[in-house]
């Protein structure tokens, strides 16, 4: 019974992907699957204009990941190592973008800082505050681990400097958590649409906006090909997320 439901659920997730792939490889999808014969022309048409857009999205996502580690890493350390009323308050503050819907946050951002929109700065910062909760969720439990803290204390008492402790003890111990944070943040930023809606620079859209534009202006076959290209870029990141989660030690709350 539970196995059947699991199989059906997997089919429910997979069927739209397969259908989109069929649409992307059909000459005329309105005549049915592979109507007019199979073709790869739609992919050939879709790739050249999409390539620079995907490149831009990858760059934004990479920047957001780097900022997450640079800014979120120390914050996670403070929250994990110095728990107090202040860190609890910080926890609520960080999670504001989880409670406030993305489109509302987008309205809030563009209403407050319209001058930061054309440069793309507002987009990157919007993605940063939207993804920080996920970085914290992954890093704080790892950094709060008692065994890790004992090991760090031992290393320090043996004379290791702070940088050396960080490099040889803390980072290796948190590697799975860091992988989890990095992959999740990357995937979220790469596919982000809601927060970006009013803050993305109109002249230089990210990949989801190119797709959204195609959905209303292009043929279904071409839009399908673009969607499948997008999925192909997300799939490796997703695999990394799943692998990181499978390697993570199970923590009971």
């Amino acid at each position: 019974m539970t196995r059947l439901v699991t199989r059906l659920t997997c089919a429910f997730v997979a069927i739209p992907l397969l259908a989109t792939l069929i649409a992307a490889t059909s000459v005329d999808f309105s005549q049915g699957p592979w109507g007019g014969g199979p073709t790869l022309d739609w992919f050939a048409h879709a790739w050249p204009p999409l390539a620079p857009v995907i490149g831009r999205s990858l760059a934004v996502a990479a920047l957001v990941v780097a900022l997450n580690l640079a800014v979120g890493g120390p914050l996670a350390w403070w929250v994990a190592r110095h728990p107090s009323v202040l860190t609890r308050l910080t926890g609520y503050l960080v999670n504001v973008p989880l409670a406030v819907p993305g489109i509302a946050l987008s309205v809030a951002l563009v209403g407050t800082y319209p001058m930061l929109r054309p440069s793309g700065l507002l987009l990157v910062l919007g993605h940063l505050v939207f993804t920080l909760p996920f970085t914290l969720a992954a890093l704080v439990p790892a950094l709060a681990d008692d065994e890790l803290r004992t090991n760090e204390g031992v290393a320090r008492s043996l004379g290791a400097g702070p940088v050396r402790v960080l490099r040889t003890i803390t980072v290796p111990a948190c590697l799975v958590a860091v992988t989890q944070a990095v992959t999740m943040v990357f995937a979220l930023s790469f596919g982000e649409f809601n927060v970006s809606f009013f803050v993305n620079p109109p002249a230089t859209p990210t990949a989801p906006f190119a797709l959204f534009d195609s959905y209303s202006t292009q043929r279904l076959e071409l839009a399908s090909a673009q969607s499948m290209i997008f999925v192909a870029f997300v799939a490796p990141v997703l695999t990394a997320i799943v692998l990181a989660r499978r390697r993570a030690p199970r923590r009971t709350p």
Binding site: T9, V13, P16, A19, G191, V234, A235, I241
Partner: peptide
Amino acid sequence: TTDALLTLPIALPGIIIGFFAIVLTGRTGL
């Protein structure tokens, strides 16, 4: 594989899920 498949939609923006609906159950849907 099950794990990866069931996690996949979290990495897909909402617009793609809307587009899936069009491909399957739109006016010329499969």
